Computed example of a mutant assay.
Amino acid sequence: MELPPRPTLFDFHGVPMIEIFTANWDSIQNFKARPDDILIATYPKAGTTWVSYILDLLYFGQTCPDRHMSIPIHERVPFLEISIPSQPSGKDLADHLPTAPRLIKTHLPVQFVPKSFWEQNCRIVYVGRNAKDNTVSFFHFARMSNFQPEPGDWSTFLQRFMEGNSERNKLIQNSTTCSTEDLIEDFGREFNSLCFFLGLSPSAEEKERVATGVMFDNMKQNKMTNYSTVKTMNQDVSPFMRKDPLNFT
């Protein structure tokens, strides 16, 4: 498979972006959110996949158990703004999700989130991460993902990261906030907090099922969560899921 050249960052209304996030811009901005949609808003590599899988198992682990071993996580929880040639756009995947609620993820900064999410008063789960771990994870992801700008060496990437010359996100209203560090420190406490925000009361058995399913080693071995089905990611360069020391993606 011949891969396209790496993209370059450019200024988009004051925010560094790449073309796969802006090519479908008008369509993204006109996205029709529903009142029960849940938006997972994160900085890239801040714990997006982990929290996406937690919520996916929480909502659909019992009613649709086969989907977790047959449908990739990026189809179950579409990446709203992504638009890659010859592949379904994130918006199209979100539009056609058969589940209720729809779980949708985004790395857009608050000013770019489609207005329908505010109009429909959708719930938003914002995921943060220690900046040091986030930077390391993002660097290795940029090394292995052909749809990321060339990262250069570590010192160059780190300087660019500290200057803010990468995709950005901000805390947004009507949301709950969690962090990968807090989830690792006390998963039960943070899981209960998420459930409270979402208005859910899972049984002890359901909590255990989710906690087991989202363990790092289980997710790393699951082809539906480790992104090994995505051919534009060269996991020989660096695995999508790394653990060094706090490195859920």
Results as ranks from 00 to 15, higher is better:
206 E>H: 08
247 N>V: 07
62 Q>L: 02
221 Q>M: 04
136 V>L: 00
40 I>A: 00
182 D>R: 10
203 S>V: 04
96 H>G: 15
66 D>G: 01
140 H>E: 11
177 T>M: 10
4 P>N: 05
248 F>L: 13
35 P>G: 11
118 W>M: 11
194 L>P: 03
166 S>F: 14
160 R>F: 06
27 S>N: 14
63 T>V: 15
43 Y>S: 06
88 P>K: 15
34 R>P: 05
129 R>I: 07
119 E>Q: 14
84 I>C: 01
162 M>H: 03
183 L>I: 13
61 G>Y: 03
104 I>F: 07
7 P>V: 14
233 M>C: 13
53 Y>G: 03
121 N>V: 00
230 V>I: 15
32 K>T: 13
175 S>R: 07
98 P>C: 09
167 E>P: 00
215 M>Y: 00
199 G>M: 07
137 S>M: 04
76 R>P: 08
123 R>K: 15
92 D>C: 11
20 I>E: 04
191 F>C: 04
224 M>C: 15
89 S>Y: 04
167 E>K: 07
149 P>G: 06
118 W>T: 10
43 Y>P: 00
121 N>C: 09
4 P>E: 07
121 N>D: 10
40 I>M: 11
214 V>M: 08
44 P>M: 10
24 N>M: 10
149 P>F: 10
249 T>P: 03
65 P>D: 13
43 Y>D: 03
131 A>R: 01
196 F>L: 11
140 H>R: 06
21 F>H: 09
132 K>P: 02
99 T>I: 09
88 P>Q: 11
218 N>M: 06
124 I>K: 06
193 S>P: 00
235 Q>C: 10
195 C>H: 02
84 I>E: 09
14 G>S: 02
144 M>P: 00
119 E>W: 04
44 P>L: 08
116 S>N: 12
145 S>F: 02
160 R>E: 08
48 T>E: 07
243 K>Y: 00
29 Q>R: 14
153 D>F: 00
99 T>P: 03
106 T>L: 00
41 A>L: 10
199 G>D: 05
10 F>W: 07
165 N>Q: 01
146 N>Q: 09
145 S>N: 05
96 H>S: 14
33 A>W: 04
235 Q>N: 11
133 D>C: 06
162 M>G: 08
100 A>K: 01
156 T>P: 04
249 T>N: 08
122 C>G: 02
127 V>F: 07
237 V>S: 01
33 A>F: 09
199 G>P: 02
87 Q>K: 13
94 A>G: 09
56 D>L: 15
123 R>D: 01
156 T>A: 05
77 V>P: 05
221 Q>R: 11
235 Q>H: 14
102 R>G: 05
124 I>D: 00
142 A>H: 05
124 I>N: 03
145 S>M: 12
117 F>L: 09
132 K>I: 13
102 R>L: 13
52 S>Y: 02
28 I>L: 15
3 L>T: 14
217 D>I: 01
163 E>Q: 00
198 L>T: 06
49 T>S: 09
244 D>E: 15
198 L>C: 04
229 T>Q: 14
33 A>Q: 03
137 S>C: 04
154 W>E: 01
